[in-house]
């Protein structure tokens, strides 16, 4: 079932890609192949593979249960939040929170997770800023003025 769904999604995607290739503008100086053919070959082959996967799917993979899905979703949310807060909030706070949460998700013990978060945040900051000389801000820039 998973493979069928995957095959279907890829099939639709590759057809869309094939169609999108038609709208690539060709310049005045065009070589015999042009900018459209290779993408079309690739998406055509992808569509063929997707079709074969649809027809002969593999055995169902081992999907995680609901609880694990929720934890994965939380991890995803943490990573996305980290990506967006790294700049406005400075390095220390987002890193401490994100690595603390990830650590807790791997080993569900509160104290080690908190310590991991704090330790990684401070340790990595010292490493990046002072040893490697990257330009990172420790805290939100608005706090500094």
């Amino acid at each position: 079932m998973s493979d069928r769904l995957f095959g279907l999604i890829v099939l639709i995607g590759s057809v869309a890609y094939f169609m999108a290739a038609a709208s690539i503008p060709t310049g005045f100086l065009v070589d015999p192949v042009g900018p459209k053919l290779f993408p079309r070959l690739v998406s055509g082959l992808a569509a063929l593979c997707a079709l074969l996967i649809l027809i002969r799917p593999d055995a169902e993979p081992d999907w995680p249960g609901t609880g694990t899905w929720l934890r994965l979703l939380l991890a995803l949310a943490v990573l996305v939040a980290y990506a967006y807060t790294l700049k406005p909030l400075g390095f220390l706070i987002p890193t401490a929170v994100a690595s603390g949460v990830l650590s807790f998700q791997i080993r569900s013990r509160l104290l080690p997770a908190v310590l991991t978060g704090l330790g990684l945040s401070v340790g990595l900051f010292i490493l990046f800023r002072f040893v490697l000389g990257l330009s990172l801000f420790a805290i939100p820039r608005t706090w500094m003025s």
Binding site: S99, I106, R107, G119, L120
Partner: peptide, 19 residues
């Protein structure tokens, strides 16, 4: 232990790509 190393590696990848 992995519960320190994995978050650490993850943060390093983020900072690397960000920089």
């Amino acid at each position: 232990p992995p519960w320190i190393l994995l978050p650490g590696a993850c943060m390093v990848s983020f900072v690397g790509i960000y920089s």
